[in-house]
Nucleic acid binder design. Structure first.
Lengths: 126, 126
DNA sequence: AGATGTCAACGAAGACCTTCGTACATTCAA
DNA sequence: TTGAATGTACGAAGGTCTTCGTTGACATCT
């Protein structure tokens, strides 16, 4: 389906995608109001227009207030961004990145348990 | 000692830091030749000069060929970069990033074992 | 109808990054 | 001493990203 390679989102674009992923299809105003206190309305609008050009979001223009929805998945995007960081900063070693993240950031018991469970699954599985 | 906050390295800067971290203090030419096939010599030089201004590297000018060494640690830099990604793309959850990395990238038995060992240490420790 | 508010569109500015041409100094060899 | 090689320094171009002012269309309220 994705016949064209979509670029990774920039910082501003990612913060907008986070809103769309959380709230579903939204108008520019809704996104603008959901954002902490960042930029002005026209800045958000402009960024979303650029995102539409890039294919990161789809736009429904049937109403006067256009409705935008994410055109890239959260998981796929996270995966690509992590992969990029692994290649750039960890010589391609996912395990190194994982250990650096676990060492430097405290995680709750529940989160650590989830990671352990995933590791067990990988052990048993492939 | 780091009285000023050093910015995170850009992509080109990070590739240079990777060389310095691996080979130790080096001249521009040595770095240039260690880099895959990326940019021209003056591009590498310019980038390293900018890095010196930013405080990412230190420069020894006592010889005609200046010798540069990394002024930021590999681990600390990796830690900050991972942290930034966690905040931007994973709502601050390190565990989520870890799981995404483990799911999407194959790791060797040894690497997975190392991650498990780290988790056990965290379990027993704090 | 006229005033007011909301919206998309456009253009441009400012910051940063990457790239490289050019200039100038130094070293070394013929 | 002249010329080639090697080095730093400088400046500028081209790209991307973020930001926002302004404009014109449309809607709504009085």
């Amino acid at each position: 389906m994705p016949n064209v390679k979509k670029p990774l989102p920039t910082d501003a674009e990612l913060s907008i995608l986070n809103v769309l992923w959380g709230k579903g299809p939204s108008t520019v105003r809704a996104v603008f109001e959901a954002l902490p206190a960042s930029a002005g309305y026209t800045t958000v609008l402009k960024t979303m227009q650029i995102m539409a050009e890039k294919g990161l979001v789809k736009r429904d223009e049937s109403e006067r207030s256009h409705v935008y929805r994410a055109a890239v998945g959260a998981e796929a995007t996270q995966e690509r961004m992590v992969g990029e960081l692994i290649d750039k900063a960890f010589s391609g070693s996912a395990a190194q990145l994982v250990m650096r993240a676990l060492e430097s950031r405290v995680s709750s018991k529940e989160e650590l348990a989830a990671v352990r469970a995933l590791l067990e699954k990988k052990k048993g599985g492939a």
